[in-house]
Design a binder for these strands. Structure first.
Lengths: 134, 134
DNA sequence: TATAATGATAGTTATTTAATATCATTTATC
DNA sequence: GATAAATGATATTAAATAACTATCATTATA
């Protein structure tokens, strides 16, 4: 089990890279070549980030992707939620089944509270932090 | 992503059940029937728990499993570690690859710290807590 | 000796994740 | 206007993991 999955990790790397490069726009092909990420894979991630309003796109020849938000306005939890199904680590596999009462489940309460903690921590970690502190 | 996977969840339920029943030994077949868990599946879990010294076994006719530890001596994190590959949620998929220096990775540091928090929390949650507080 | 249990381990199926492929649309340049 | 180079949308395949099943040997009781 990983807290940050591959998609999220790639997304973070791409965004950090784009900030560092400081180019107006950069194509999926270039990112794929420079960061050594499979082309169709990074395309899907870039498309998602653009749908989520984190990237701008310019179509057609010479087009590509550029950042729409400032690094201090992108948090890690935002990206995790986009690529990891809202990060619902509490989801009970036994609901409607063995478990007598979901509301009285101590384990569930504990996990829920841990989830809250994680979301707060990653909510305070921006892309700027990742760039600046390194 | 789930914090507690199916194996761990079953293991917890079985142990709680065994404490509540207060029978000397109980067979895998009985547990399977009473908790509605697939027989070969629960067998594997029981075998693992017995290898890990959480259960005692008696082989042969009339045999089965019984608890070896007290509920206050079994923590949730123990069970998670047994069934979930030590719960290494930090594991970096990019080592030896893109990442320039694993030691300077801010994201990694953050995730590692979250992992530590989770392990402490689940380390303080015993099976007795799960029974008593319910 | 037959039966009912676990020990050990192999094998299968289902689900999820990772990666690839295709074609339409857009836009810059020649 | 034609061509090339880009993204948009979406379908498909492949690999990995998780879930589940099966088999046979060994043990112990009646």
């Amino acid at each position: 089990m990983l807290l940050i999955n591959r998609d999220t990790d790639y997304a973070i790397r791409v965004i950090v890279y784009m900030f560092k490069m400081d180019e107006k726009t950069i194509s999926a092909r270039d990112i794929s070549d420079r960061l050594d990420i499979p082309y169709p894979f990074i395309r899907k991630i870039l498309q998602t980030l653009s749908k989520e309003n984190i990237l701008k796109t310019r179509r057609g020849r010479g087009g590509g992707f550029s950042l729409k938000k400032l690094p201090e306005d992108i948090t890690t939890i935002q990206l995790v939620k986009i690529f990891q199904d809202d990060m619902d680590i509490t989801h009970c596999i036994f609901k409607d089944n063995i478990c007598p009462d979901i509301d009285s489940c101590i384990l569930r309460k504990e996990v829920k509270s841990i989830e809250k903690f994680i979301k707060e921590r990653l909510g305070n970690l921006t892309v700027e932090d990742l760039i600046r502190k390194q």
